[in-house]
Design a protein around this nucleic acid. Structure first.
Length: 230
DNA sequence: GCGACAG
DNA sequence: ATCTTGTCGC
């Protein structure tokens, strides 16, 4: 894998344009026995990032294990280029997984991106794994505020009206989350799967548990490596 | 030029 | 993203 730390934004843009030819937004018809969530945590002003992937049994959503790694990152956070900052660390956590999940939910957008290359798509294309993007804020596209009830959603589209994903009310009276396909999953499919990951919190279980894990890791409450919970 | 802007 | 206490509403 190329070294993202030395890249300039124009160079990163070129990479996104090259990778976009490999994106596959297609129905996922494989099995779904395991789903995972990926997230990153770090201390403000630090170049050390704590990455983690938590694997859950599906549809019970019970965690079965987690992979945690620490890595130095120099690429800054630039809206639209999150992947260049977080993918390298996530890749290490991914490689360390003894068994890969059927679907991976990444904290960030999939194709709901100016060049259709959000972090979930970027990671999916590089690993050739089905991924879904789940973000807490919109990055790109237009949408109408979804209804107030849990489960209500509205389409997220580009200027040509093409469907990129959805704004989803994952819990009553909370701001919506944004769901979009990463790779090897289609738009409706990404919503169907994500809806089955909601457990009463705003964030879907895979993302929520991954977020908790990387924070515990950063605060030295749990250690690096692969840990089985079985 | 102005507004928007994942984590 | 992270830093932080109390506070308002369901």
């Amino acid at each position: 894998m190329t070294n993202y730390n030395e890249l300039t934004v124009p160079e990163a843009t070129l990479i996104q344009k090259q990778l976009r030819d490999n994106i596959k937004v297609t129905p996922y018809n494989g099995p779904l026995n395991y789903i995972a969530g990926a997230d990153i945590s770090f201390n403000k002003f630090s170049t050390t990032v704590y990455a983690g992937i938590v694997v859950l049994e599906f549809p019970s959503l019970k965690p079965v294990g987690y992979s945690l790694v620490k890595k130095e990152v120099l690429f800054p956070y630039v809206p639209g280029f999150l992947a260049f900052r977080e993918v390298p660390a996530l890749m290490d956590a991914w490689t360390q997984l003894p068994v890969k999940p059927d679907i991976l939910v990444v904290d960030g957008h999939g194709i709901a991106h100016p060049r259709r290359m959000g972090i979930a798509t970027h990671f999916g294309v590089l690993t050739q794994q089905p991924t879904i993007g789940s973000a807490k804020k919109k990055l790109f596209g237009n949408y109408e505020e979804p209804g107030p009830e849990k489960g209500n959603y509205s389409p997220l589209t580009d200027r040509q009206g093409e469907l990129l994903g959805y704004a989803l009310r994952s819990k009553n009276k909370v701001k919506p989350i944004f769901v979009s396909p990463g790779h090897l999953v289609d738009v409706p499919g990404s919503l169907d799967i994500l809806l089955r990951c909601i457990k009463g919190y705003r964030l879907p279980e895979p993302t929520r548990l991954a977020h908790n894990a990387v924070n515990q890791f950063r605060l030295n409450e749990i250690s690096e490596g692969w840990t089985s919970l079985l």
